[in-house]
Amino acid sequence: MRAVVARAFGGPDVLEIIDVPVPTPGPGQVRIRVQAATVNPVDAATRAGLLAESGLMAPRDTIGIGWDAAGTIDATGPGVTTFTTGDAVIGLSDRLDVPLGTHADYVVLDADAVAPAPAGIPATHAATLPLNGLTAAQALDLLDLPRGATLLVTGAAGAVGGFTVELAAHRGLRVVAVAGPGDERLVRDLGAEWFVPRTAADLPAEVRAVVAGGVDAAVDAAVIGPRALEAVRNRGAFVAVVAGAAPVPLRGTRVSNVWITADGAQLAELSALAAGGHLTLRVADTLPLKEAALAHRKLDEGGLRGRLVLTAQA
């Protein structure tokens, strides 16, 4: 089978398509024939060597790329009773010690990292849900806010930010969205009650102008750090989406990082929400697996609304 790997760190051109044996699922695992796999910023960070530099990934000669996958169950290992061959599924590969990622023709995952695919939604769109949707949901779980609480979401027009806005609104939270000036309609359609442009000269002041005393909490998907923290009330809560981006917990703020974990049960809930039209799955473009390097170049250029998705085309 084909798999996307990096044997050196650097720009998109370090990516290679190699031929490797089709993996065999072990106890409690399933093999997925991948139809679509999302290209995420963490894939670019992996390729560039940032995860290795930060100590999150052990050194090795060949590094597989990819976290998200949508496809069909191709084989099951011993003890798997929740899935059968032919089931349409989505899944997340969250381990950094495995040799290959989801940017491949097949991937083996633990069965509890997999969920039924959202009914009626193409694999290209379904593939955008696992990593970004779970990150948003788990960030909100860390905050544990009651209905009616106020939440600031930076990067609200992005993939993680957009899911955070929708899930927060679904949970009964009141959202202040921070995004580009041209994204106000988008984030309001996602469920934001208030909008503050990211270009605001004094972002904390503008947030506090619409929510007196500051918001109860923030999810910092845009990694603006202290500017977002200053918009949070004293003894509020703050979640950083990117590793190492958590600011100093000033004014008694409870600050934490969301460390993504594969969770098939939670992913099944997100899948059902997507199937019911409560989550917006946005695809910026689709490219065949063989164009992985081009997808990374497009990602590095920025300006995307939605995710790039690699498909199983030859």
Rank of each mutant, 00 (worst) to 15 (best):
D61R: 14
L51V: 07
P41N: 10
V98H: 13
A111R: 07
G91N: 11
A75D: 15
F83N: 05
A37F: 03
P59Y: 00
D110K: 05
A58R: 14
L51S: 05
P59W: 01
P41Q: 02
I65V: 14
V80S: 05
R47G: 09
G28E: 01
A70K: 10
R95A: 13
T72N: 09
A119M: 00
I73K: 11
G101A: 06
L109H: 08
G91Q: 09
V98D: 11
L96K: 12
A113H: 13
V89D: 00
I32D: 07
V107Y: 08
T46I: 15
A111V: 11
P41A: 08
G77Y: 02
G26D: 10
Y106F: 15
G55Y: 00
G71P: 12
A119G: 00
T46M: 14
W67F: 14
G120W: 05
P27R: 08
V30L: 08
A104T: 13
V34P: 11
A44K: 01
T76P: 11
A127Q: 10
A123H: 13
A37V: 03
T124N: 04
T102G: 03
A70R: 09
D112V: 01
T128W: 03
A119N: 09
T128E: 08
P27W: 01
Y106M: 08
A58I: 03
A115H: 02
A70V: 08
I32W: 09
A37Q: 04
D105Q: 13
R95F: 01
T38L: 03
A37I: 01
V30G: 01
V39S: 06
G26I: 03
A119W: 00
L92D: 00
P99T: 04
P118S: 07
G49S: 00
G86A: 09
V98K: 11
R31K: 09
I65R: 11
V30I: 07
L51K: 05
L50P: 02
D110M: 02
A36W: 10
T102L: 07
T62H: 12
V34D: 07
L92E: 06
S93K: 14
T62S: 15
V80D: 03
